[in-house]
Simulated scan of single mutants.
Amino acid sequence: MYKATEKLFEICDYGPVYPLSIFDYADKSSIREHRDAVEKEFADMDREKKSLGKLFSRIRRLLPGAEIPVVFTIISPYTQSIFVVDSAVYLGLNHYLGTDYPLYESFPDYVRRLKVRGRIPVDMAEAIIRTSYPFRPTSDYPQALSRMAYEGAVAEAVMQVADVNEQESLGYSDDDYSWLRDNEHDIWDIIVGKKMLFSSDTDIIRSLIGVGPTTNVISPSSPGRAGRYVGHRLVQSYLDANRSASLESLFSHEFYDNPSLLSLAGYNP
């Protein structure tokens, strides 16, 4: 616990660990305002312990190159709910207090709907996967296709290790997910027709996969991160056509940077 606290204080720039600094940390308004709600909501964490135990077991089996960290629960002063440092992962319980939690009222719907206990295994899986298998393109200017394929690989891995469906992995509401499914062909046509697929423009890539209410480069009506949805569809098509491919192989640049990826995947929405 001391080493974990020491690392947390280093990350948060709170200086060395000693009784007064721990008291100061606990007394910060960003920590104190959530304390009662966290203690009440998470008085019993048996559910999380069981679900995370199953999650880590699947990760060991399906992603042997991933490191399983030690989990420490905290009240996080940051907007990031989970972060991995060395062999430890810090789980900010104040980010999972339910959609009706009063201090979430100012958050947009697409953020607030994900702040529920059921998201903990999904978010934990994604944090471990991204840390263990970061995006490492061969080019200094990766194309949108490469990043979309990587994001699709992350979504697929989360589905398999967290035992959730595509909608849960990607974090969409029913309406947003239905819109993406109904418009998948049109989304692909826009990405290809506007020459975004092989673009290295960081603004375009950020718009396609970045968190937000919409994907404006597709349509004002499109839910956010539409490029990530299409990326996962591409990955599913690739796995259907290449059944011997392992889950771990999707995180190699030989996959997401492969110039023949489109033909290998045979994606045709």
Rank of each mutant, 00 (worst) to 15 (best):
S30Q: 05
L62W: 01
R32E: 05
M45D: 05
S29L: 05
F23K: 13
Y25C: 02
K28H: 09
D13E: 14
F56K: 15
C12S: 12
E41N: 07
D44I: 07
L62K: 11
V17I: 04
R47L: 10
P64N: 04
A26R: 06
E33S: 11
F23L: 10
R32F: 06
M45Y: 15
K54V: 11
S51L: 09
L20C: 04
R32K: 13
F9T: 10
D36W: 09
D13L: 14
G15A: 05
I22Y: 07
R61G: 11
V38I: 05
E10N: 14
K40G: 08
K49V: 15
F23I: 08
S57F: 01
D13K: 15
V38K: 10
Y18I: 00
D44S: 09
K54Y: 05
D46S: 15
A26Q: 08
I59V: 13
L55K: 12
L63R: 04
L63V: 07
F42C: 02
R58H: 07
S51M: 10
L62C: 10
E39R: 15
R60G: 13
H34T: 00
H34D: 00
I59M: 09
K40H: 13
H34L: 02
C12A: 15
S30F: 03
R58M: 05
P16K: 04
A26P: 01
F56G: 14
L62S: 10
F9I: 09
Y18N: 02
F42N: 02
K54I: 08
L20F: 08
R47E: 08
K54E: 07
K49M: 15
L55A: 11
D36I: 12
S51K: 13
R58Y: 01
S21V: 01
E10W: 06
S57Q: 11
D36V: 10
I31H: 03
A26Y: 03
I31S: 03
S21L: 00
S30H: 01
E48W: 15
F23Y: 09
K40L: 12
S51G: 07
D36F: 12
S29G: 03
A26H: 04
